[in-house]
Amino acid sequence: MSQTLRVATFNVSMEASNYVMQGKQVNGEKLFLNLATGMHPQIKNIAAIIQQVRPDIILLNEFDYTFSDDLGVKAFIKNYLNVAQHGAKLIDYPYFYVAPVNTGVDSGLDLDKDGIASGKGGDAFGFGFYPGQYGMVVLSRYPIDKNNSRTFQNFLWADMPNNLLAGIKDEQGVSWYSDEAQSVLRLSSKSHWDVPIEVDGKILHILASHPTPPVFDGPENRNGKRNHDEIRFWRDYISGEQQAAYIYDDAGKTGGLAGQHFALLGDLNASEVEGDGINSGIGSLLAHKLVNADFVPTSQGGLMQSPENPHAASHTADWRMRADYVLPSCNLSILDGGVFWPTPDDPQFYLVKNRKASSDHRMVWLDIVLETRN
């Protein structure tokens, strides 16, 4: 027997600074206050997009993580997804996965070299002004094996063989990061997750992440090099065996995958043909023998936004790049896929007309076939 699954990723821009006036202090509670009402128009539109596409499994990037009891996720499901939005049918996700991320977590060091160890922003382990900003959540219609889920929040960048950390230097050729900083700096700007989901007796590993944008730095290219290595982590992880032997998770378990079915999801902030990143990172992942990257999701909306750009149809962000990916393992076949990006003459265009409508990213989805035991 086989089971068709719709798997998606969506950077929803649901972090607190989107919901308060500029200059006001923000924290994750600001997002929760809007989730509790069920009335915020931007969040209603995000829910409407999810209800229109109706994925079975979806990763949400930039969903603040603050509440250890999962109140924020539960409020989003109950007050927005479980309510029909703009004529769409309500949708339910009985299972979800959330965990802490590195954004806004104080490193105690002056990582951005502005002379002040501020404990937030550029001095956090991942850029953010409070712990949990730009977090992640996996929503699923199928049971999640939380006991066997793996997180890599605390994996040290320096522990990756042949990493690009040591080569980050300022304009005088001096290492950007001190020896102390290199000994504590974590690889993940948010986190890397391996979340097993059970579908009719078969396990699908959801590999979730949100690497740092390869910009907002200087000639030292510290963010570009981190983005490269955050993506390279997955290349090593799915390779398994010796290539993944150096990897350890937050529980101390070592190694990577070994031939399992997986779907790698997230806003990877990288393109092999556009943008400011080191394109060999994403390029080597797309070319990996264990990744099925033959199907490139597209949209007419992206094409119409930049008709002169040969890559426009595959763009997933309104700043004109393919940044968001659903990459299944090569042992999974792909039936269909797309990018939710209505054209300006489409009645649903209001859902994506600008960032305030929903997000500056578009949902990406694939229909994949998973062989099951039934």
Rank of each mutant, 00 (worst) to 15 (best):
A263Y: 07
G259L: 00
D267S: 11
S271M: 07
H261C: 02
I282E: 08
I278A: 03
G266K: 12
V273M: 03
E274R: 14
I247A: 05
D267E: 09
G277E: 08
A244V: 00
E241T: 06
G256R: 09
R226F: 04
I238V: 11
A244M: 05
G283Q: 11
G224H: 13
E274M: 12
L286C: 14
L290G: 12
L290K: 15
V273H: 14
I238N: 04
D267L: 09
G252N: 02
G259I: 02
R222W: 01
E241P: 00
L285D: 06
Y237R: 09
H288A: 12
N279V: 12
D249K: 09
L265D: 01
E272V: 14
I282G: 02
D249C: 01
H288S: 10
N221H: 13
G240S: 04
R222P: 01
A287P: 01
I247C: 08
A258D: 13
N223Y: 01
L257P: 01
E230F: 06
D229Q: 11
R235G: 15
V291S: 11
G256D: 11
R235S: 12
R235A: 04
L285G: 14
H288G: 01
G277Q: 13
I278Y: 15
R232V: 06
I238Y: 00
I231L: 09
I282A: 08
A293V: 02
L285C: 13
K253D: 06
L286W: 05
N223H: 14
G259M: 08
I247E: 07
D267T: 10
Q242D: 15
G266A: 12
L264T: 01
I231Y: 10
